[in-house]
Amino acid sequence: MPVLNGKVAIVIGGTRGIGAAISRRLTADGASIGVTYLNRTDDAERLADELRSAGHQALMVQADVSNARALNDAIDQIVSHFGRLDILVSVAGTAIVGPLEAYADDAFDRSFALNVRAPFLAAKKAASLMSEGGRIVTIGSIVADRMPGAGGTLYAASKAALGGMTRGLARDLGQRGITANLVQPGPIDTERNPADGPNADANRSPLAIPRHGTPDEVASLVAYLTSAEAGFVTGATYNIDGGWSA
């Protein structure tokens, strides 16, 4: 029997790359799923058709989750549709990079609105709707621990904030058996960072395992953290980075 039968999951930013792999894995494990996306409707519709054709329950909701009202409304819509919520995975993020002197005045606010505020508000909302034993997983980045070069100050700062947030959530929600954990991928072969892209060799140079990871490998880690077997795992940060941080 699939380990998530009867569970309902929400994936914030779950239609492409790592997010899509997580959506596929959670449904394969038996969960019904609600997925938010920003603006690539064709990608969302293709994933929905794929999941439904395989016999899974899937609802796609378009929302700019950097907007608090839109994020809360999307979660409400998904929970109203499925009738419950057991799992939240926050994937959506942005990378505003470049020379320090070139950052726009609003770059900090835009970075933190999507990379930090959105997963915080999603966790806060989800926790109010979950029963005992819920699961919250946030997808961060290994640059929170090691910044390999110039140009990523805001991206690294926003991703570093997720570690403290996760530890705080673990303390706030532990009495209810709700776990909160952080997954920090290194170079993963996606549209944003392809294994054959112009930066691929530089991305791989710090690795102990000299290849890009795959979205499915990240999804497998998330699958464990959302399962019953991970009920005593909370407040933890998991690096899935091919040895980037070793």
Results as ranks from 00 to 15, higher is better:
Pro185Lys: 03
His81Met: 11
Arg110Thr: 10
His212Cys: 08
Ser131Pro: 09
Leu162Phe: 09
Arg135Thr: 00
Tyr155Glu: 11
Gly55Glu: 08
Tyr37Leu: 04
Ala170Asn: 09
Val91Gly: 02
Gly163Val: 02
Ser245Tyr: 10
Tyr103Thr: 06
Lys7Ala: 06
Gly13Asn: 05
Gly168Ala: 14
Arg52Asn: 09
Ser245Pro: 01
Pro185Trp: 03
Thr214Asp: 12
Asp105Gln: 12
Asp201His: 12
Glu132Ala: 13
Gly197Glu: 04
Gly242Asp: 05
Ala113Cys: 08
Val61Arg: 02
Leu162Arg: 06
Thr27Asp: 05
Val79Tyr: 07
Met165Trp: 02
Ala102Asn: 12
Ala228Thr: 13
Leu169Ile: 03
Pro2Cys: 10
Ile136Asn: 06
Met130Gly: 06
Ala113Gln: 07
Pro148Trp: 07
Leu182Gln: 10
Gly17Thr: 09
Val116Cys: 11
Gly164Val: 02
Arg110Ile: 08
Asn181Gly: 08
Gly98Gln: 03
Gly17His: 09
Ala246His: 10
Gly243Glu: 07
Gln175Ala: 15
Asp76Ile: 09
Ala208Asp: 08
Ala20Leu: 05
Ile178Tyr: 04
Ala156Asp: 02
Leu207Pro: 12
His212Glu: 08
Asn239His: 14
Ala156Ile: 03
Ser158Phe: 05
Val233Glu: 04
Arg16Glu: 13
